[in-house]
């Protein structure tokens, strides 16, 4: 893939696969490949400013998202899962990315919608970087009254901060357990000085 390499930064490649058995009723192809491609493009655009790609010139970072089960707020789940996967892989990022889907039913805003809710009410997916409180993604496929938009956006940003705490706890406990498992080397080190060459 020489055409996709950049001499000053890493290329990010996102591929999304939606299993046909992931929805309530089985569907052959989930609303066409176009939608899945757009999904991938959205994820790529979300993470491009967050991953510190300039550290890895002429390389590629592959992100494979496989949706095995879904019931609404799929983009939100994909973005949050990608954040955790990137951190787990040790890829440098400036911050977490926390996404949440918000909607509004008559006048009451709501978060984290199911498929039924997504089908009926206007909704918007918002991704935030909790440290700087910057919004990296706002995407909307339905019409939403402009008076309601600010309310939902603020609610989603607050929800992003909560998600950040949860994700941070998960990341820290995962790191702690990895480091704790790698810890008991004391036994090997005491004898590491004499090489074991037994003929």
């Amino acid at each position: 893939m020489r055409s996709h390499t950049f001499h000053d930064r890493a290329n990010i490649n996102v591929e999304v696969v939606v299993a046909s058995f992931s929805t309530g009723e089985r569907r052959k192809r989930l609303r066409g490949d176009k939608r899945v491609l757009e999904f991938a493009a959205t994820i790529k655009a979300t993470f491009e400013p967050v991953i510190r790609t300039s550290l890895y010139p002429r390389s590629q970072i592959d992100i494979y998202v496989q949706v095995l089960q879904q019931d609404g707020s799929t983009l939100q789940a994909c973005i949050n899962a990608t954040t955790l996967a990137l951190i787990n892989a040790g890829i440098p990022m400036t911050d977490f990315v926390c996404a949440v889907t918000g909607g509004v039913h008559s006048t009451s805003p709501m978060l984290d919608l199911t498929t039924l809710e997504e089908n009926d009410i206007p909704h918007v997916t918002v991704a935030v970087m909790p440290k700087t409180k910057k919004v990296v993604l706002v995407t909307m496929e339905t019409r939403l009254h402009v008076d309601r938009f600010e309310e939902i956006l603020n609610l989603a940003r607050d929800a992003g901060a909560i998600l950040h705490q949860e994700m941070k706890e998960a990341v820290l406990s995962r790191s702690a357990s990895l480091i704790a498992m790698a810890e008991p080397v004391t036994k090997g080190q005491s004898r590491a000085d004499d090489d074991v060459i037994v003929d």
Binding site: M181, A182, K187, G188, Q189, V196
Partner: peptide, 12 residues
Amino acid sequence: AHFIPLSDTLLL
């Protein structure tokens, strides 16, 4: 799989 660092004595 248990994330244990390898060493010669450990292997032995």
